[in-house]
Design a protein around this nucleic acid. Structure first.
Lengths: 236, 236
DNA sequence: CGAGTTATGGTCAAACTGACCATAACTGAT
DNA sequence: ATCAGTTATGGTCAGTTTGACCATAACTCG
């Protein structure tokens, strides 16, 4: 087990350090089926503790930025991405999250559009993984990803997050594929489309998606606003 | 405007301090109508900044306790109460929440049962207020309470939080009164009861509430479990 | 031009919701 | 004792929503 150089009283005296992490979701075609699946980028730990294991992108909170700005910067620095959706997930503050020191992590979760996600940086120490096939992660990050997935599924069922995983224009079948990927079950195309059509925030365009192998589907656009987090309320 | 003794560079160098606050809701009969209404306890600021104003109970995070434990202790120390429900609300980390220093507050919200709430400490510097009639509070605490109320209304509509504002045994009309108080609109007694009766988590007892002026209503019991926060998942 | 496949519109019954009516059961006043 | 007042409780009915499923439209490819 790891042993800090600081003795117990010194460790107790140091304030708990505060870090920001982000769970970033994007859709990518599965290698096997080709259908869209959830992926997320992880960074390799290059220092103890958990050296060599994969972890959520994160870092300390700097003084001149809000929590959301810190998460946003973080995301950009590690993956080069600009999120289309960003929301606070939870503050994790258990005593033994890190073996070396007390760390409180304020975790955000983000959605990025596939056009963005395609440009994402990938390197020796930054790699994308299928959200349902992660190995053992550093710290309590497996639990954090689980919780983020739970939240995503929830928000999907009610709210309007699905469109942030798609581009500006999309077909109703693409929306359905998002739901099927995230909820992991098939949905009836006709019933699903009926529900979406009764949603005022989804606007029919005159365009059709060309180049497919079959009947060209109509393109739609999402005109709604995100949620009403404390962080986002002022900007409404 | 308040001026810290530390100069700018010193303030930038100090790490953002981390505090825990709690929004505590309980039901109390309204003075006017006598019907249950939402109340919450506030503490008076005895120091700058915002000296003299009312604020949410809170304090620094100590090193040997988890976030939830800190919130729980906080709650007990300021009001003498043990919550029947406690959930993390949000981490507030805007740059200018406090004029004197950068503070990140992790806020919890709690529900306490009326039997508990009746015993609550009240003093010169701790007082209960109607949730819909708060004056100007210290820091960004008005916004925090607003958000907590929004969350409470939301959780009520779906989940199972209402029962944590009531005692172990309750009548269906009492549950309806909780909904009416929180959502601030009247609900049809017959329809409301039909919904509750179709909820498997609400169990009919053989007892009746005696001593009322009219037909004695049957008493029920709630047998469900709370939500599935990261903090609570392990205890399930 | 026909087969294959997706897009899209529709039907039907079951489940759910909100508005509303009726009866039961108690207290308190007459 | 009886009745008026009030809440508890059960029920009806029409409108809406949901899930299962069928049918036609429109495109590509061989």
């Amino acid at each position: 087990m790891y042993s800090s150089s600081a003795n117990v009283s010194e460790r107790q005296a140091a304030p708990p350090s505060l870090a920001i992490s982000t769970v970033i979701f994007a859709l990518r075609p599965s290698e096997s089926s080709g259908r869209p699946t959830l992926w997320l980028p992880l960074v390799r730990r290059i220092r103890e503790p958990f050296k060599g294991l994969w972890a959520l992108p994160g870092g300390p909170l700097s003084h001149s930025e809000s929590l959301q700005d810190a998460a946003s910067r973080n995301l950009r620095e590690t993956t080069g991405l600009a999120p289309s959706y960003l929301e606070q997930l939870y503050a994790f503050g258990g005593l033994h999250r890190s073996p070396t020191q007390r760390v409180v992590s304020i975790v955000y979760w983000a959605l990025v559009q596939p056009t963005e996600a395609a440009l994402a940086d990938e390197s020796e120490n930054v790699r994308w993984f299928r959200a349902d096939r992660l190995g053992e992660l550093a710290f309590d990050h497996n639990a954090i990803v689980d919780y983020a997935l739970w939240r995503l599924r929830n928000k999907l069922a009610y709210g309007s997050v699905a469109y942030h995983l798609l581009g500006e224009y999309f077909t109703l079948a693409q929306v359905r594929e998002v739901y099927e990927a995230v909820l992991d079950r098939e949905l009836d195309p006709a019933n699903f489309r009926r529900q979406l059509k009764s949603t005022p925030e989804i606007e029919e365009t005159g365009e059709y998606l060309q180049g497919g192998k079959h009947r060209p589907p109509r393109l739609y656009r999402f005109t709604g606003r995100p949620g009403l987090d404390p962080d986002n309320r002022s900007t409404l």
